[in-house]
Amino acid sequence: MTDEALARIVQSLVESEAGRAAGAELLGRYQRAVYLWCYRYVRDHERALDMSQEVLLRAWRALDSFGGKSKFSTWLFAIARNRCLNEMHRVSLFEEGEADFDTVQAPNPDPVRRLEEREYEERIYTLIRTTLEPEEQRAIWLRCFERMPIDEITWVLGIESASGARGLLQKARRKLRNALKESGDE
C-alpha cells in the first residue's frame, strides 16, 4: 500500500484502530530515515532520538492536514528539516562560523527591517547565483541556509575531491567576499 493510501486511511478512519494501525505503519516506514537524518545533523544518538520522536509525533498530530497533493515522504521531510534547522546555529555566509545576521528563519517583526532583510536576502541570492558555480551554490546554500554539517554536504552532494565540501565552501566564500568587495557593498 502506498504512503498516500495509508495516510488516507488514517484520515478516513480517524480514532479507529485501523486508522491508528495505518498511522503506525506509515510513520514506522520512515522512523529510520528520520533518525539517520537527525543523527547526521547532531552526531549524538540520544539527541537524534529525541529529535526523531518530536518529528514523528508532530507528523502524527498533523496528519489530518496532509493534503495528499505532495508526496508523504516530502511532507515528512519538510517537518524533519524544520526540526533540524531549529537545532543548528545559523552559519555565516562569508566565513565558517556562526552568523551574526538573521535570515529567512526568523523574520523581524518590524516591517521596515523586514523589507531591508528581504532586500538583503534577494541581493545575497543573486550574488550566489551570479558568482558561484552550480556545485558551489548548492554547497553554500546547504551550509548557510540549511545549516547542514560540512561532512554531510560532502555526502549529500557526492563530492569526491579529497577536501570534500570544506574545500568547495572555502573557494565559494572567497569568491563571494571578492564579489562583495568589488560591488563596494561590504
Partner: peptide
C-alpha cells in the same frame, strides 16, 4: 537544487 539534494539524502 540544494533542498532537492537534501531530500534525496533524507530518503
Amino acid at each position: 537544487s540544494a533542498i532537492l539534494a537534501s531530500y534525496q539524502g533524507f530518503l
